[in-house]
Design a protein around this nucleic acid. Structure first.
Length: 463
DNA sequence: AGCACA
């Protein structure tokens, strides 16, 4: 048989122990393929997420008759083959074995290679703030476990990032959940259109991050020097289009909280401000009869995004706890690691008391405060996975549960998490999913977001 | 909805 002969009509094709399946849901995983096919015989190999839409797959049976059984069964069955409710079309492959089952990018590792399609290298106007947004987008990856390092770069394939986790398990959970999803428009600069995440495994195991910069981060080493040149544009006074110098910028924000009808705790602030990037430290204090807080980020870019996005917004619906933000003159806060008025998240928590600081805190929505929802809202990674435990466990217990549908299962306190998650091209909004729009508080007053520390747990002060 | 990989 010549392999170059490409039969036009597949139904005339000669049987093969390899079957070609199409019209699969893109999320389809190997287990689901096996589930569907194993009643007909022994599966010796599979290849899923094939093709431009990643909706095709190959399954290889141990012998030809098993493949024939499956094809003939579904050819005459009144019940079509289905995965996740989608009818799966089955035919003989024009090859007789699956070769090279795994491409290098499919070999699991602890470092993910993320390509953001639609953000091209030709788009070199990828300026500092743009990159800051993309780093914000990448914060979602911390919802799956502690992200150790991020390096971003531009290649022909587009804007890419390497994201390092401690272990393969965490990385693969993140990959399985986010691969193929699109980044919501409101997270992106207006000139960027559709942006899909393509995620494969990198062969790297440990990234060598030399500086904290607008394009790289080492979260395991908060004291790593900031790249002087890369951050230049951020540290120096910025001249606006009108020629006027902008205000002094800092990685530490000063928040004044107005109309404080509800307690604003460290946890609440962490929940709200973590939507834009890893919060390093928080301190709450009283000044002139009002409550103020200092929130420290690793860099100015994230602080700038958070400041713009949150200024004038209310933590709680109804105009309560309105935030007014400015840059602090501090650059590194000296705070107690754990008190009711302060927190230092750069100190490893797991060594402490079991008190958890899940990156996935909880409901973060936005009070529009009379202003239409800005496009510049950040990625509240937290709110997308309301039921996910911290600590990197696999949360996808059911194959049909993915972030886009998580809202339906969310407890009422989280119902305000109305910021759409990364959307799947195939995902329909969850039934009963709350609608975005209107006034959505940043935080629910009686919600447990962030979880106050368990009373029985002793506070962490370091030692 | 129509054949991968390197």
């Amino acid at each position: 048989m010549s392999t170059s002969a490409q039969p036009q009509f597949r139904y005339t094709q000669t049987p093969s122990k390899v079957l070609h399946l199409r019209n699969l849901p893109w999320e389809c995983i190997e287990e689901e393929l096996i589930e569907l096919c194993k009643p007909f015989g022994k599966i010796v190999n599979t290849k899923c997420n094939v093709g431009a839409n990643r909706n095709q797959a190959f399954v290889e049976f141990s012998d030809l008759n098993q493949a024939i059984n499956m094809v003939t069964y579904y050819a005459s069955s009144s019940e079509p083959a289905q995965i996740r409710g989608k009818t799966v079309y089955i035919q003989y492959s024009n090859r007789h074995e699956i070769v090279n089952n795994k491409s290098p990018g499919d070999v699991p590792g602890n470092v993910l290679l993320v390509t953001i399609e639609g953000v091209e290298a030709g788009d070199v106007s990828i300026d500092v703030i743009h990159l800051a947004y993309l780093l914000t987008v990448l914060q979602v990856f911390s919802a799956f476990g502690f992200v150790h390092k991020i390096a971003t770069f531009e290649k022909a394939a587009g804007f890419q990032a390497l994201i390092q986790y401690s272990d393969v398990q965490t990385a693969s959970t993140a990959r399985d959940s986010l691969d193929g999803r699109s980044i919501p428009r409101y997270l992106l600069p207006s000139h960027v259109n559709e942006c899909y995440l393509r995620i494969s495994y990198s062969a790297h195991t440990d990234l060598n991050i030399k500086f904290q910069s607008h394009r790289s981060r080492d979260y395991t080493n908060p004291h790593l020097p900031v790249n002087p040149t890369a951050m230049d544009g951020l540290h120096q006074p910025v001249v606006g289009p009108d020629g006027k110098k902008k205000e002094f910028e800092s990685n530490v924000l000063l928040a004044s909280i107005e109309n404080m009808q509800y307690a604003v705790t460290v946890d609440v602030l962490n929940t709200v401000f973590s939507a834009f990037g890893a919060v390093q430290k928080i301190a709450i204090f009283e000044k002139n009869g009002g409550t103020q807080a200092l929130i420290q980020y690793p860099d100015i870019a994230i602080a700038a995004v958070a400041k713009d996005a949150l200024e004038g917004h209310c933590i709680y619906d109804g105009g309560y706890c309105k935030l007014h933000l400015s840059y602090s003159r501090h650059t590194d806060l000296n705070v107690k690691a754990y008190s009711d008025k302060s927190r230092d998240y750069t100190i490893p928590m797991q060594q402490a008391t079991g008190w958890q600081n899940p990156p996935a805190a909880s409901a973060v929505g936005y009070t529009s405060g009379g202003v239409p929802q800005a496009h510049a809202q950040a990625a509240p990674s937290s709110s997308w996975f309301p039921t996910m435990p911290a600590g990197g466990q696999t949360y996808m217990s059911s194959p049909s549960s993915f972030p886009g549908q998580a809202y339906g299962a969310a407890p009422p306190a989280y119902a305000a998490a109305a910021i759409p998650p990364f959307s799947s091209p195939n995902a329909h909004p969850a039934p009963g999913a709350p609608q975005t729009g209107g006034s959505v508080p940043l935080h629910q007053p009686n919600g447990p977001p962030g979880g106050s520390p368990h009373p029985s747990q002793s506070p962490y002060y370091g030692s």
